[in-house]
Simulated scan of single mutants.
Amino acid sequence: MATTRIGLDRLPPAARTAVEEHTGPLLTVEETTEGFNSEIAARATSATGTWHIKGLRTDHPRAWTQRREAAIAPFLTGLAPALHWHVETNGWDLLGFEALTGHHADYAPGSPDLPEVAALLRRLGETPCPGIELRHAEQRLENYATHPDDLRHFTGTHLLHTDLNNTNILVDGHAPQGDRARLVDWAWATRGAAWLDAGYWIIWLITAGHTPASAERRAAEIPSWHTAPTEGITAFAAANANLWSDISTTDPGPWTQRLATAADIWHAHRRTG
């Protein structure tokens, strides 16, 4: 469920001062609408630079997402925007990220962004999983797997993002080809089987208009996808169909319904294919 968004100007003056100790006096603040986890999300500029600022009250139920992003940021060079500062004061937890340029990835069939996303996921697959506290894929899916034994397919030691929403991927057309995409919003970073992010991508690709077969061909551009057992992929599709059915029932809306439909379509393809 989305978190209510407020403006950066609603921060307590002392918290704003703590931010400006890192940035200098802010000259412009542009509130952003993407994302669901943050109460504050803004692109801010000062005489010394530009930042993407994310914030939550320290007593917010999702305050852990800020700590997770701060903990994992140092390990994501070349994958995500750099974290320049972290402030926790006056009841607020605030992160100051490198402000990326570019557009949200276009997942539509034939999009020139698709190879860039695949290259990004290949780089992620080569990134060591840091030794910090992370959720485990089999734990996150244990209530949705069709059979308890299916969970063994999801275990692993690899770093996963798990939220391949196209708005979480920024593509900079001016960067070198093959290195244009970056992943944002690492709150749901997870440890698990290497191929799972390619599987998560499939559901979003189907939502964007791909057939299950064409989406799986895109996933096959990620080397780790070829380590997935056939029965593991089918089990993953089933678990995600159950997951999105639950989400779309609990939090009904156009986007959750689209994801639930896409997950069902993929699951049906796996059962009949």
Rank of each mutant, 00 (worst) to 15 (best):
T32N: 12
L170V: 13
A105R: 07
L56Y: 04
I206F: 02
L11I: 14
L141P: 08
A63H: 07
R152E: 05
D113K: 10
N168G: 06
T230A: 15
D9E: 13
R122C: 08
G199F: 04
A262V: 06
E20F: 01
A73C: 01
G192C: 01
T45Y: 01
D197A: 00
I132A: 06
N90Y: 14
L100I: 07
E69I: 03
E216N: 01
R68H: 07
I233P: 10
D59S: 02
H158Q: 12
S46Y: 08
S214K: 06
A70H: 10
P12S: 08
T250D: 05
A237S: 11
P25T: 15
I233E: 10
P81Y: 11
G209W: 06
H22P: 02
L94S: 04
G232K: 04
F75I: 04
L205S: 04
A18Q: 03
A220T: 08
I203S: 00
T249R: 13
L56Q: 01
M1F: 09
A47Y: 02
N240W: 15
A145T: 04
I233K: 13
Q139M: 10
W266C: 07
S214G: 02
T157C: 09
R5K: 14
E231L: 09
H158I: 02
H103P: 11
P252F: 01
Y107T: 05
W225A: 05
R218K: 10
P115C: 03
A220C: 07
R182F: 13
I53E: 06
W204D: 15
W201G: 08
L114M: 15
L76V: 10
L56M: 03
T234H: 14
Q139W: 10
G55S: 07
Q177H: 15
A220G: 09
T33R: 12
T48C: 07
E142H: 13
G55K: 10
G7N: 14
N240R: 15
R135K: 11
R271Y: 01
T3V: 15
W201C: 11
L8S: 03
W92H: 09
T65Q: 10
A73W: 06
W201Y: 00
P148L: 01
E69S: 00
